[in-house]
Structures are given as C-alpha cells and as structure tokens.
C-alpha cells in the first residue's frame, strides 16, 4: 500500500516498513522517526547507514551484529532507538523488519 511520508507517496507494508529502499531519504527517515517518538540526529545516521548496507549485502541483522559492528555498542543502540532498537531503526532506515530473535 501507499502512504504519504514527508509529503511524498511512499510504498509501505501493513506494519509501516518501506517496501522500496529507493524511496528512502533523510526527510522520510525523520518523519518515520518522529512517529516512533525519536528525534533523528547525526548520531543516528551512521547506524542507519550501517543497517542499510547490511540489508543490501543480504546479511541478516541481529542486536549482536549491530553491537559488534564498531558503529555503535548495544547500550548506545538502545539509547539511540529506545523501545525496540532493531525494529525501530530498521523502519527508520527503510529496510524490512528483521526476523531476528537475538
């Protein structure tokens, strides 16, 4: 389905995750972040870029992997995206919801 995010028509699934990463932009990310109760800052961006990179390389994501990425540690990840970091960060990054239990 389509919805309007940051004044643009964006394709999303029923959980609000982008279905086409090409439609992603910083403005879209900021609007989704706001919905998630997060004020996007420059500190968030390296994490978002890392997640997008992993997705493009088809690497399954987990909290553990993010913690070992060298981009952010686990404590920092939870602090940047409180209340479900992997889910929220993925949604803001415009990639699918990770099906990870770890």
């Amino acid at each position: 389905m389509e919805t309007t995010i940051a004044g643009k028509n964006i394709a999303v699934n029923d959980e609000g995750y982008l279905t086409d990463l090409n439609q992603w932009s910083r403005e879209v990310a900021e609007a989704i972040a706001q919905e998630e109760g997060i004020q996007l800052t420059d500190d968030h961006m390296p994490v978002i870029e890392y997640l997008q990179e992993q997705y493009k390389n088809e690497v399954p994501l987990s909290i553990r992997k993010v913690g070992k990425s060298g981009v952010v540690d686990i404590k920092g990840f939870y602090a940047l995206f409180p209340g479900g970091p992997l889910k929220k960060a993925s949604r803001i990054a415009g990639i699918p919801k990770p099906a990870s239990c770890i």
Partner: peptide, 11 residues
C-alpha cells in the same frame, strides 16, 4: 536469555 533479550528487543 532469549526470552529476556527478545523482550528488550520489543521494548
């Protein structure tokens, strides 16, 4: 551990 960690991942 997985149940506890999974909970934290869901907020």
């Amino acid at each position: 551990f997985i149940l506890a960690n999974g909970a934290r991942m869901e907020g």
